[in-house]
């Protein structure tokens, strides 16, 4: 069982029905990685074959959701996934304790921390290979779910995350999150945060873009 959502199919331009599952299990994450690993391998081969510089490779190419599965035994960890057309299209892991807001207006108040989020390799845009996503909008659907989780927890929509460099534009310009800045404690990745007002604006579609 899961929540009915829609995602955009790029080729047809249509919105298609999908299911957003909450409470993914260890087994789910292993199934996801088995499904995605072959596509990661195929992309490595294609990138190498095309001589694409390493710095331009998708930055989450090396991830392995199966290795993140043990975290699920913790109460503070939740995993969500979007499935449609018989496959897992995107996954997100969140934490609901131990993370406080950093933006001054709400500093010190708890938030939902997005520990990991990634779409399936066939949903990546890789311009160097001329690859376009099969489904679009998966990241938006999952971040929307993180905001909803934050509200349900009483965190009023506050969400924080560390974006990989290739994703900074999405979180800053598309979602409208505050760009707090590089975080030396997290590999110098840029930390982004939704304040309560920004989360409201994102959900209502009036984000700062």
């Amino acid at each position: 069982m899961g929540e009915r959502v829609q995602v955009a199919e790029r080729a047809s331009g249509q919105l298609v029905e999908a299911t957003l599952h909450e409470g993914l299990t260890t087994r789910d994450l292993e199934v996801i990685e088995r499904s995605w690993a072959a596509h990661r391998a195929e992309l490595v081969a294609a990138l190498m074959g095309a001589g694409v510089e390493r710095r331009l490779w998708p930055e989450s190419l090396h991830w392995d959701w199966g290795r993140k599965a043990p975290l699920l035994e913790l109460l503070l960890v939740n995993a969500f996934g979007v499935a449609c057309r018989g496959g897992w299209q995107a996954v997100m892991m969140t934490k609901t304790a131990g993370y406080d807001a950093r933006v001054s207006s709400e500093a010190g108040k708890p938030l939902v921390y997005v520990d990991f989020v990634e779409t399936a390799p066939w949903n990546w845009t890789i311009s160097e290979l001329g690859r376009l996503p099969v489904f679009k909008g998966l990241g938006s659907v999952l971040i929307r779910r993180a905001v909803q989780q934050s509200r349900a927890e009483g965190f009023r929509g506050r969400v924080g995350l560390h974006a990989l460099p290739q994703a900074e534009r999405f979180y800053g310009q598309v979602c409208g999150m505050t760009r707090v800045g590089p975080d030396a404690a997290k590999q110098d990745l840029v930390y982004f945060e939704f304040t309560r007002q920004q989360a409201d604006a994102f959900i209502s579609g009036g984000g700062d873009r």
């Binding site: 090396h62 990991f116 909008g137 598309v174």
Partner: peptide
């Protein structure tokens, strides 16, 4: 409308990945 708007904007971005540069 929300889905189309965000899907189109998201597709202009190379990635939505957040987490860790290398391994967790």
């Amino acid at each position: 409308e929300w889905l189309r708007r965000f899907a189109d904007a998201e597709a202009e971005c190379p990635s939505v990945s957040a987490g860790a540069r290398q391994r967790a």
